[in-house]
Amino acid sequence: MKIAFSPCPNDTFIFHAWVHGLVPGAPRLEVTYADIDVTNGLAAGPNGPDVVKISYAALPWVLSEYALLPCGGALGRGCGPLVLTAGDAGAGGPAMLSGRRVAVPGERSTAYLLFRLWVAQNVPGGVGEIVIMPFQDIMPAVRDGKIDAGLVIHEARFTYPAYGLTLLADLGGWWEAGTGLPVPLGAIIARRSLDLPSIAGWIRASLKYARAHPGASLEYVLGHAQELSPGVVNAHINLYVNEFTENLGDTGYKAVETLLGRAVREGLVPKVDLAALRR
């Protein structure tokens, strides 16, 4: 079975057991490790993987071929994307972004979708140029003055002070304050032609193994974690692997439906059958 997910600690932690043949009855995996912007493209293109991690914002483009699985993804509270500037450049608040260059981690990323919704309410006249960058390149670009601000995700939440950067806005906090819902970040999807209940069961079994044997996956996780310290890796896992990872539940589904429903109304994504998210 072909699968694609990011090399981020939450994904490698969740899938370690399945990748290493530790889930009874699960098929052998052929893994592609790639940034979320790449996996979004793989799912939308021809001959995509059987199972793939994508941004929730990318779901409208793939729901005809793929089903949203109720487990394995990244959705939570206190874990949303951040808007960062260098030094005190953001002292003027969100208005300082008007007409400026901002780097974002993918055109169809959930972070960028949240950013566009936030900008519509908070930045008069909108930003200037949007620059697409791999997420790991964004903070150095802001630090070095190549761009005016950066939208960051993942472990950047823990590491941005080391780059001398300043928090301009926490889009997760903005979303939660306005909706009362967790932030939908990354989804696990599988081809509708496959045995979806079994795949969900294998993911949950892999997650259960990871939680029962937290040290077993450490070498594998660190090997893909782009030079992160064990402390940052553990903080990343503790934040992004949570109750919604095992089961989206009604709250999780409502969060996704709210995000995509708002995006459709704003004309930011194609129309989508929200009922299809649960089947």
Rank of each mutant, 00 (worst) to 15 (best):
M1D: 11
A4E: 11
N10Q: 14
F13Q: 14
H16W: 14
W18G: 10
G21T: 11
G21K: 10
P27N: 11
L29N: 10
E30C: 09
V31G: 10
V31N: 10
Y33K: 10
D35W: 12
D37R: 15
L42H: 09
L42P: 09
A44T: 09
G48Y: 08
V51L: 15
V52C: 12
V52P: 01
V52E: 06
I54L: 10
I54S: 09
A57W: 06
A58D: 14
L59H: 03
P60I: 03
W61A: 14
A67I: 02
C71W: 07
G80M: 01
P81N: 06
V83A: 00
A86G: 04
A86W: 05
G87N: 03
D88V: 11
D88P: 00
A89K: 13
A89R: 14
A89H: 09
G90C: 01
G92A: 09
G93C: 02
P94K: 03
L97G: 00
S98C: 09
R100C: 09
R101G: 03
R101N: 02
R101S: 12
G106F: 11
S109C: 09
L114I: 02
R116G: 06
L117A: 05
V119R: 10
Q121G: 10
N122E: 11
V123I: 03
V127Q: 07
G128L: 10
E129I: 10
I130E: 15
V131A: 12
V131P: 05
M133V: 05
F135D: 15
F135W: 13
D137F: 14
D137R: 15
M139L: 13
D148F: 07
V152C: 12
I153K: 12
I153V: 15
A156V: 08
A156F: 12
A156C: 15
R157D: 00
T159I: 15
Y160Q: 04
A162L: 13
L165Y: 09
T166A: 14
L167H: 02
L168G: 02
A169E: 10
L171G: 10
G173A: 15
A177G: 06
G178H: 05
G178V: 04
G180W: 06
G180T: 03
A187S: 08
I189Y: 01
I189G: 00
R191K: 13
S193D: 15
L196M: 05
L196K: 04
A200L: 06
A205S: 12
S206I: 03
K208F: 01
P214K: 02
G215N: 05
S217W: 09
L218N: 11
Y220N: 05
H224K: 10
P230Q: 08
Y240I: 04
N242T: 05
E243R: 13
G252S: 00
L260R: 00
V264M: 04
E266F: 07
L268A: 04
V269D: 03
V272Y: 00
V272W: 01
D273P: 01
D273M: 01
L274W: 03
A275Q: 12
A275D: 14
L277E: 07
L277S: 06
L277Y: 06
